[in-house]
Design a protein around this nucleic acid. Structure first.
Lengths: 345, 345
DNA sequence: TTGAAAGCGCTAACAA
DNA sequence: TTGTTAGCGCTTTCAA
């Protein structure tokens, strides 16, 4: 057990320079002569010196930490987001401090984030109390609600056009001649669900249709499977189902095919929301609304770093356009109609 | 922009106690009278005081940070691991500092981890140079290679019984009467792949069979799909395929059904490795070797925290038993034979 | 139990 | 360009 901590002072001594010279050598853009630089670097290498990021963070007030809070990782949309976000953040010399939350503990987690002096916060599908949002704003820490928004909040938000996307995919179903269209909702109090549902309802109304039925799946596989079972327990069956996200749609498709013994899309059409990788897999070929995760992340990172740099927090609400990923889980309208729907986005 | 940083000194002043009293109040197990405690807590609440975790980490030498490095999150085994690991770590008052690596940048990432003074490192499907491993050991930082091992390394490792698992699932195929069994490998230099492949080969040899064919899928969907296409381009077809992980197996199944127009398991049996959630989905129902992710994580966390507490790093290599998740993607042997295979694990 | 004092390893004025 | 100096906010002896 050596446990010998090599400090900048040790390096300075060996290199025969001041401790600040060492610091400067490791601070990009600081003024050091090439000669000193080399001497320091040599000494550092010899001793195996590694700057202490915590000490640096403390004094400079820049931790280079971005907190990311996610509620769960089993809906594959989030791992994808986490991966891309993490890479983007790393590219700028920052690191992700990860927080996995359970419902209700979000505020505690945010407290923890603040203790770690993170410079920015991303809340993926979760939100914080308005008092905490205020505290973050006061402290100058930008907060981005990812895939969710709260109108009253001080936090910025990045979402995709959930209303428009849902309208589009519902239009697709209606144009293809479906008349008994059911909706399986996600978590009812989430903004994504509310927007997707209202887009669905708008399209239905415009099409002169009433929702065939509406059930709640709470964004879980089990909830969705349960909802699907109820939908098919009587003979009064829907001819299409709009499911509030892909993760639930897969479970719904499983129930339809394996339990109800029906065929997709011949007997029932199913559409989802998100366009997670599995939606393209052969086992599902799900027609769904594509959320441009890459664009959403780009926007998130932009908000974060602009505000970190400027040192001022300001609320922004970005809505990224959604598009349609048309596959084979839903009966399609004629080519012209389809085109019109996609264009009308 | 308030940016007012409330320090323990501010709290001390308001509470009319010394700054150390404030520190003690927020240090579990420190000796403070109930009266002082309350005064401090009150003052802290009034001022919105939040201990600075970085300052605490610096002085105490305990960052309460665990670095987790993952290469990618699209194989669903890893998000699952990340979620569980993160929760386990949080339960102990630690936080995960996330690193997403590209091949070859691992050592750089480890340097960064060390700069952040993390107390432990988990490398999921990646490894570090032996010199760095030595450095970590010298610094007293436990390193766990998760789902991979390097015999020569100083790092601990937690894997499942890849050899045994592969043998089991191959036995299953052989007992069911398959004779032309192909193998689609993952990343060739990974220990998981090597072990799974050698388990496969052992079972084949014991069964008096030669591998029908062996291709490399590199643990990616694209690689696996490509391998599967080559496997079915001629009429000399396999009657079963052992795929080195589930993620690839799904792609293989897609090619078999959608491109080759064959039926699973009637024309070809397919088995995988990992038992990710999608393996149980209706679209695949993949018979696969189950890696007990929960146990693996338990062991990982145990190694980490035992060594953090003891302050001494010592190499441990844990192999967690694997089991079979039998579904319908592979033709089955008779019930007794099946039982014998499962028992023989 | 409490407070004073000495740093943890570093950055950032400031003067030279 | 360089070194000196003064902290960042906290924990942890040490004495009282």
């Amino acid at each position: 057990m050596a446990r010998e901590t090599v400090t900048s002072e040790d390096v300075a001594r060996l290199a025969n320079v001041s401790q600040s010279a060492v610091s400067r050598t490791f601070t990009p853009g600081a003024s050091v002569s090439e000669r000193t630089r080399q001497r320091v670097l040599d000494a550092a290498r010899q001793l195996g010196y590694r700057p202490n990021a915590l000490a640096r963070a403390m004094i400079s007030g820049r931790s280079r930490l971005i907190a990311v809070l996610v509620a769960y990782l089993d809906n594959h949309f989030y791992p994808q987001v986490l991966e891309q976000l993490s890479r983007a953040v790393q590219e700028r010399g920052y690191q992700v401090l990860l927080f996995l939350t359970d419902r209700g503990t979000q505020d505690q987690m945010v407290q923890k984030m603040l203790q770690y002096q993170v410079e920015g916060i991303v809340m993926a599908s979760a939100d914080m109390s308005s008092s905490l949002a205020r505290e973050c704003a006061d402290t100058g820490i930008p907060v981005v609600l990812f895939n969710r928004y709260v109108t009253s909040s001080l936090s910025s938000s990045v979402t995709s056009d959930n209303v428009g996307g849902a309208r589009m995919v519902t239009d697709l179903l209606i144009s293809a001649g479906h008349r008994r269209i059911a909706f399986i909702a996600g978590t009812e109090d989430s903004s994504t669900n509310q927007d997707r549902e209202s887009g669905f309802l708008q399209a239905m109304e415009r099409g002169g249709l009433l929702p065939f039925r509406r059930l709640v799946g709470d964004y879980t596989s089990e909830g969705a499977a349960h909802a699907a079972r109820r939908l098919f327990e009587s003979d009064e069956r829907p001819d299409a189902i709009v499911v509030a996200n892909d993760h639930m749609a897969f479970a719904v498709m499983d129930v339809i095919r394996d339990e109800a013994g029906l065929s997709i899309p011949d007997d029932v059409s199913v559409v989802g929301f998100d366009d997670v990788p599995e939606a393209g897999w052969g086992g599902y070929k799900l027609t769904t609304v594509r959320q441009a995760a890459d664009v959403m992340i780009e926007e998130t990172v932009k908000i974060l770093f602009e505000q970190i740099e400027k040192g001022e927090v300001e609320r922004r609400a970005i809505i990224v356009p959604a598009s349609l990923s048309v596959r084979t889980s839903a009966r399609l309208p004629s080519a012209e109609k389809l085109e019109r729907i996609i264009e009308g986005a």
